[in-house]
Nucleic acid binder design. Structure first.
Lengths: 351, 351
DNA sequence: CAATGCTACCCAAACGTTTGGGTAGCCATC
DNA sequence: GATGGCTACCCAAACGTTTGGGTAGCATTG
């Protein structure tokens, strides 16, 4: 804790310079330039004196002054559907850490996946003069992204991808495939998918990966076995109800593309007197901290959420350097737990 | 979406002034002062022309330049134990909304409840020159807070309170009392409390409220019926195990001061072959969105989390105006669900 | 010994605002 | 017709940095 160390005014470059009898620019170069520049700016002795005094007086550079001059704020704007979505919260934790490490600070705002809000929040961030944006709520149609590109706003996507733009995501197709493989292996032949929102690549990719692998294994699955839903618990419950309400043999396994939806589905199953893990297997996605600790622990695809956030920061740094980084797809891994650990029950008839 | 509307440079006050043949200061006053000052600064006609042009060129004021001059950044720093704690995430959503409404932007950072990290993060925020802090991870010992006060850093507490400092919290004592009343009424006489971390007022108050009411109702509860724990699911499970492992009659009800701990406890109960809501009642706290949607819906004390965040913003605004606002305690309400809806089972002997 | 090249600095302008203090011109008042 | 009081502006300094371009003094080189 420095600054105002002794109750007085904030100490500035000029203060240091005056005290030492050198010019502020010299102090600036010593303190804020790479050692290469600093070398040319002052003798080793002077540099030492500068640094000592800075430490002693608790000098802390004024970022607004600096960015006024440099036209860079070292601020990152992050837009997420909602921070109360654990998945995004953890990604943000990754962002926060990684950006701090490179001297950036991050803002977050919620868009609630509403296009108007997305625009509004982006405008707010740009008004704050963020150097770049990390967009965690990209919609596949991507009109907004084209607009940002046209306006030369530096940005990268996170969590959800849209082809053609740099992004840091989990490899959700592979994730879906793993689940299909697992359920098939456990003997399931009748399955349903709670697929999430069709505007999100996470939902699309996980579902597509699942379906592709399922079919290539020889499984059959029809369109109405795929139920689109919100990503939250309520959405999962609703979707679960819908699956059970159909007049066809109930599935022996359900893949929900999101842990919360899976938890909702578990609720629906239980209300129908079914036991998760015995009567019906359930698999979620993301391996949120809850999954392992639920009364019936939930099989889930682990996605490296914090790493995705960290990667997003790396990518935006690259973009800010003028590069055009490739999309990064991080590897998912399946964690098998009680909710899908038993072999498929014998075929059941319409419920 | 404004700014750089036509690909060119950012438009400044000076640009507007030049174009209109007036002085930048006039433009500034018209655009950024209350209508009172603006009145004296320009004729109605000029003011109109200024505003029109500003709109047309998509002028957006540079906040760093402004704060360099005014010495206020309109930035708020928020420190939370972790953003991946749903409770804090929702409070932050409240902060985000409320601060945007008054022209402020908020930063969040995680402290992981670690004193060193708290210091470090606070320093980072101050280095960014935030106008004030909202502290969501206050520890009851409060050494850090005294220090901040000494340094005249404006701050308010949120979620957790520490006597003597302005804070926005749920009235956790009342919350604990309600739970005690409910469980007593349902016929429970043998109960245990999963109490959370002793450095957090939330844990202390909820537990104290519960114990006080319980005893005043005639109930008995001993020290080892109160188990301290982490606030997360794993902590709850552990605490649940501990409660079941004691060599005394198992309680017929458990109050966990936090929904996640409650979920963990439910898991522990189930592993012991007990059915939540029948064999053992469980009550949580916060009524997070999960509670209602769990396979066995969880009785929980609803606390107005988003409002607490919003209130925190109001309080910090007051502090910034130089006032010394009273602590705000928002009202909790109990939501009774399946996990505690049945009357207490007959007394059980040691398990 | 003049030219060259360092080293270790200094200088000044600029970034986009805000704000306390002018002042020119006009009208009303005494 | 001097005084006072508006109205509608203008002026300039300041906020704390950064950075391109000096330059004085000294040592080295041809």
């Amino acid at each position: 804790m420095k600054k105002k160390a002794d109750g007085g005014r904030t100490v500035t470059l000029k203060d240091l310079a005056q005290e030492l009898g050198v010019h502020p620019s010299t102090v600036s170069r010593v303190l804020h330039s790479g050692s290469d520049v600093a070398k040319g700016a002052a003798s080793a002795a002077t540099a030492e004196r500068v640094r000592d005094l800075a430490r002693k007086l608790g000098y802390s550079p004024d970022p607004q002054a600096a960015s006024l001059r440099t036209r860079r704020t070292k601020l990152l704007g992050v837009i997420v559907p909602r921070l109360s979505d654990l998945v995004l919260a953890i990604m943000y934790e990754g962002i926060d850490e990684a950006s701090a490490e490179v001297g950036y600070s991050a803002f977050v705002m919620n868009s609630r996946d509403d296009p108007d809000e997305q625009r509004r929040k982006i405008d707010l961030m740009l008004a704050r003069r963020v150097d770049g944006l990390i967009i965690g709520d990209a919609h596949l149609d991507g009109g907004l992204l084209q607009e940002l590109t046209d306006r030369k706003v530096p940005f990268v996507l996170m969590n959800r991808r849209v082809p053609g733009y740099p992004s840091a995501t989990c490899n959700d197709i592979v994730g879906g495939e793993i689940v299909a493989g697992h359920l098939w292996e456990m003997g399931h032949r009748q399955v349903a998918v709670i697929a999430g929102e069709p505007y999100a690549s996470t939902a699309i990719d996980r579902t597509a990966g699942f379906l592709d692998r399922w079919r290539s294994l020889g499984g059959t699955i029809s369109d109405d076995d795929v139920v689109w839903s919100k990503f939250d618990t309520a959405g999962g419950r609703e979707a679960g109800e819908k699956i059970l309400a159909r007049g066809k043999p109930r599935p022996t396994a359900i893949f929900a593309v999101n842990d919360f939806a899976a938890i909702g589905a578990m609720g629906a199953l239980r209300s129908h007197g079914l036991t998760v893990g015995q009567d019906v297997a359930v698999v979620g996605y993301n391996d949120t901290s809850l999954a392992a600790e639920l009364p019936i622990p939930l099989t889930s695809v682990h996605s490296p959420m914090a790493d995705i956030g960290r990667t997003a920061v790396k990518l935006i740094q690259a973009v800010l350097r003028g590069e055009k980084p490739e999309p990064a797809q991080l590897k998912p891994t399946l964690l098998i737990r009680e909710s899908s650990a038993a072999r498929a029950p014998a075929e059941v008839s319409a419920s």
